[in-house]
Every structure is written in C-alpha cells, then in structure tokens.
C-alpha cells in the first residue's frame, strides 16, 4: 500500500474506490427504496422472468407506481448536490449552495410563474417549466454574483450569503403575491410544491427534466480538475493555464441548469446542495475529481432515503420531502457554521 503511494498519486485507486462505493450505495437505494410502501413487494419477484409482466403485480408496482418517484429523487438529489459543489468551489465559499445563494428561490419563482399562467411551449427541446425554472435560477445568480462583483468584495461570504438570504426573502414575497392572485386549488398545489415534494407519479415529468439535466452534466464533466485550481484562487488558476472566464461561464450556466431542472421537478428541496458536498468531502477529501461524481451519487442516494422517510413515516400520509431534508440538513448546516466560526 505504502509502496504504491510512493510511485503514483493514488488518485486512480481512490477514484475507483469512490465510484465503486458511492455507485453501489446509489444503486442499492434505487433498487430497494421502491420495495417499501403500502404493499410490500420482493425484488426477486420483480425481476422474475418466468412470469409475464402483465400478471406480475410486484413488477408493475415497482416500475409503474414507485420507480418514477425514486428516479426523480435520484435526478433531483444529484443535480442539487452537483450544483452545490460547483458553487462552493467557484465562489471559494464552503457555505455557497443553490439555497443560500437564492438560486433555488429564483428557479422556484420561474417554475411557479410557468405553472400558474399555464405557459406551455418548448424551446430547443426544453419544455416550459424547466425552461422558466432555469431562467429564474440564472437571473437570481446574476443578481447575487453581480452584487459581489460590483462591491469588489470578490466572493466574500457576507455579500454572497446576505445577498442570497435577501433575494430569497424578496422572491418568496413575489411568490406569495402570485399565489394570492392565483385561484384556490392552484394555491394548494403551489404551497405543497414549494415545500419540496417528489409527488411524481409517471415518467413524463422526469423526461421533461432530463434534457437540461444531461446538458448540465455535460458541462460538469469538463470541470473537476479546473474546480480544484479555481478553489485555490482564480488568479492562480489563470497563471496555471485555466481559461477562467470560460470556466466561470460553463460552471455557472451548468449549475443554474441543474438547479432549474431539479426545482422544476420537485420544488426547492432544501439543504441537499450544501450538506451533500460537505459530507462527501469528509469521506473522499477535497479533490474535485472525486468530490464531483461522489456528490452526484450520494445526493441521489440521500434524497431517495429522505423521500422514503417522507412517504413512510406518517403513512398513509405523505410528507413533502423538503420537510425531511430541512429537518436533517438544518442542523448539519448549523454545525458547519459553528465549525467555521
């Protein structure tokens, strides 16, 4: 072991272990979470090839009733976690995340406007809700980022986080207003959705969010090593051959896309974007070539687990999953603040 570390950086080996470990965790979550629910089903039965699908009740419950929701959780969890990693590295601020920067709130407002006013169009293969959500997150990010650039404070925690908190409050007020003028049944749906809810009952909404998600992942795939260098300083990254402007563009647009896709599917599920990257770093260290894929996999697994709790804790009542992630993530976030202070 020691000898091996002497000759190579060990990053190959760590990458294999990280992908293997977190990959197995995410896969286990995807396979086992759908087994739990009002009717117990067995995995052996689900994948029993001797029975035709038409008469295999377990398989139908698995694939039709429960898997869409689990896959939605996986998509949302990984997107929010990835966006969190990218914001933290790029802004050199461990407390940055879609929630704290107000990007989730921007995405929520965009999505809510599209839902409330029944906007129905597609652009470049993106349907209206994810698109509006993306526009909202990009606009919110531009405001907070612009604020910190204009103030010449670089990426100061104070400006970014106070800006994010203020923006979130402001956007919440706008959302309150939209609800106030919307009709009553619409309001109930909106309120539930704003808590962060994975009430996804078919593959349709997932397919809608898939395009922006895949686009954002293509952007993220270019970033891992560059994020290491950017997290040490943009000036030093530039002197090491990084195209800083291009990197910032790719990173911020991809993170906004991912946040937009996640929020359009499940509402602003809180704390995943900040808690997952930190928990992952405790296990794999700071290298973004490990942190980025591990956060995607762990984000998926964690949100699937939270959603499992949300739909079983008070069964047959289903809690919005955002309540579970907030109850879990809030204390972790406070602990992070305490540790930094």
């Amino acid at each position: 072991m020691r000898v091996n570390e002497r000759s190579t950086s060990g990053v190959h080996r760590r990458l294999v272990f990280t992908l293997g470990g977190f990959g197995a965790l995410a896969l286990a979550a995807v396979l086992f979470a759908p087994l739990v629910g009002g009717t117990s089903i067995s995995l052996a039965q689900v994948f029993d090839r001797s029975q035709p699908y038409g008469s295999n009740i377990d398989a139908q419950i698995f694939f039709v009733a429960r898997l869409p929701r689990v896959l939605a959780a996986a998509l949302v969890g990984s997107s929010l976690a990835l966006a969190g990693v990218v914001f933290q590295a790029l802004l050199r601020n461990p407390l940055a995340s879609p929630d704290t920067l107000g990007v989730s709130a921007g995405a929520s407002l965009g999505a809510m406007l599209a839902i409330t006013f029944n906007a129905d169009f597609t652009l470049f293969g993106l349907s209206s809700v994810p698109l509006a959500s993306f526009a909202g997150s990009l606009a919110a990010l531009a405001i907070v980022y612009g604020l910190s650039v204009v103030r010449r404070s670089g990426t100061s925690t104070l400006v970014l986080l106070l800006g994010g908190v203020t923006l979130t409050a402001l956007l919440s007020a706008v959302m309150g207003f939209v609800q106030f003028v919307a009709d009553f049944t619409q309001t109930f749906r909106n309120v539930r959705w704003m808590m962060g809810s994975l009430d996804v009952a078919s593959y349709g909404p997932i397919a809608g969010a898939l395009v922006p998600t895949l686009l954002s992942w293509a952007g993220f795939a270019l970033l891992p090593r560059v994020l290491d260098l950017m997290s040490v300083g943009s000036e030093s990254a530039a002197s090491r051959g990084v195209d800083v402007v291009r990197t910032e563009r790719i990173a911020l647009v991809s993170a906004s896309l991912a946040t937009g896709a996640a929020v359009s599917l499940a509402g602003p599920v809180p704390f995943i974007g900040i808690v997952v990257p930190h928990l992952v770093r405790i296990v794999v260290g700071a290298d973004h070539r490990l942190v980025l894929p591990a956060s995607a996999l762990f984000g998926a697994a964690l949100l699937i687990a939270c959603d499992l709790v949300a739909r079983t804790a008070l069964a047959p009542l289903e809690l919005p999953v955002g309540i579970v992630t907030a109850l879990l993530g809030g204390p972790v976030f406070l602990w992070l603040l305490f540790k930094r202070a």
């Binding site: 933290q88 590295a89 461990p94 997290s231 040490v232 300083g233 770093r281 260290g285 700071a286």
Partner: peptide, 9 residues
Amino acid sequence: ETRATFDFS
C-alpha cells in the same frame, strides 16, 4: 498569500 478553500493535502 494562498488560502485553500478546502482541505487539500
């Protein structure tokens, strides 16, 4: 001065 945001070795 160099400040690493994360815990690099």
